[in-house]
Design a protein around this nucleic acid. Structure first.
Lengths: 148, 148
DNA sequence: CGAAAGTAGTTGCTTGCGCAAGTATCTAGC
DNA sequence: GCTAGATACTTGCGCAAGCAACTACTTTCG
């Protein structure tokens, strides 16, 4: 009723919209990446994050934060990618508790090959979300963030 | 380099921001709902969706769409909530393949009790995300969607 | 009418996730 | 320099998700 309650409702509505948009984009990416490269969305995220990193290596914790995953999930995620030869673990010299992960050449190649698929799918997913009245304003807002 | 490539990068950046914001909000909600009511975020979403529905009943398929879940996951999700007595299945009279789900009184009560926790956690999560430079523009955009 | 195709929901199986506990390493305080 | 506590990663376990196969019902069309 009051102004305060409105704010609550606006937030809840915004969150539902955000979740819906996130869900639909993720589902489309998941499908496209799966069929084109047997990669899941998080796996792609890891490769992409590593490639965008100076020196191409990150510690497990950073990876966990970048993917919004628990550290145990990160361990297994890195295991999978390492088993496929897409990245390697490198022991930290200065802090021997730490482990760096780094893209291998096949990993870089795969990422390079899959990136276009990813980007096109993302564009398509956004375009189709823009057709949904519920989602349209958020999609437009996304495109208008800071162009850095 | 060109204008086209910029657009691709803007979309990718937007998607990473969206995913990050979604992830952090979901994690906070998950924790808060878990400790206050043993409910997961999707479970809360179901109860909330049902309560906002005319006549308080929805078909499984609608629920699946509302939660962005597969139909098998929806079956088991409804099972869990039904086992806890929070909702009931009601056979469709006009189409006997269909099944309606409807909040029970305990379900309504629980939702009513948990909603404040949910809303406050959401507000807090948004506020703290707003402190992160990366996320701040999106959070602001979210609040400025259509106030319907 | 009756067979074929389509739709709604459930079940079996596999996979990936989070939590909690475990191991190894680093850092402080005495 | 040694012990107490923090930090980085891994492992065991239970749970929830998706896919594909199944059952039950409805619709379509010859």
């Amino acid at each position: 009723m009051g102004i305060k309650d409105d704010a609550v409702e606006v937030r809840a509505q915004g969150w539902r919209t955000l979740a819906a948009l996130h869900g639909s984009i993720e589902a489309e990416l998941e499908k496209a990446l799966q069929t084109s490269s047997e990669l899941s969305v998080v796996e792609y995220t890891v490769l992409d994050a590593l490639s965008r990193q100076d020196g191409w290596h990150m510690r497990m914790q950073q990876l966990a934060r970048a993917t919004a995953l628990s550290s145990s999930a990160t361990t297994r995620l890195v295991n999978r990618l390492e088993d496929r030869g897409l990245l390697t673990r490198i022991l930290c010299a200065d802090d021997r508790r730490g482990i760096y992960t780094e893209l291998t050449l096949p990993g870089q190649k795969l990422l390079e090959a899959v990136k276009p698929v990813h980007d096109e799918t993302l564009a398509a997913a956004l375009a189709s979300a823009e057709q949904v009245p519920e989602l349209e304003p958020l999609v437009r807002a996304l495109g208008a963030l800071q162009k850095v």
